[in-house]
Amino acid sequence: MSEITQEQVAHLANLARIALTPQEIESLTSELGSIVDNVAKVSEVATPDVPATSHPIPLQNVYRDDEPGVTLTSEQALAGAPDHDGSRFRVTAILGEEQ
């Protein structure tokens, strides 16, 4: 059985910035446990000789020319914003520092 704990789910929720309720953490812990039990089997066949596939159709060197295109106006940019000062997006005080 999986070893997922409530502490782990709480940590994941923090990484994912979701303020889960204690009830949600409890139910997610058991659901995740059951899902992980079902999906963990991938490691059975993922032997070192098998390369990973990240893109279904292999392409490479897809670039665009360094030519400017159409930009948004600040009105368009801010139209959907929950809060702004007329030209910039406004957020409440930031606790943590830049990364």
Partner: peptide, 21 residues
């Protein structure tokens, strides 16, 4: 909650981290 869509302020306000969560 910064550029588009819903914003929910936690009771009593909070930091941007709290608001995002």
């Amino acid at each position: 909650s910064v550029r588009f869509g819903l914003r929910v302020n936690p009771p009593g306000g909070g930091t941007v981290e709290d608001v995002m969560s």
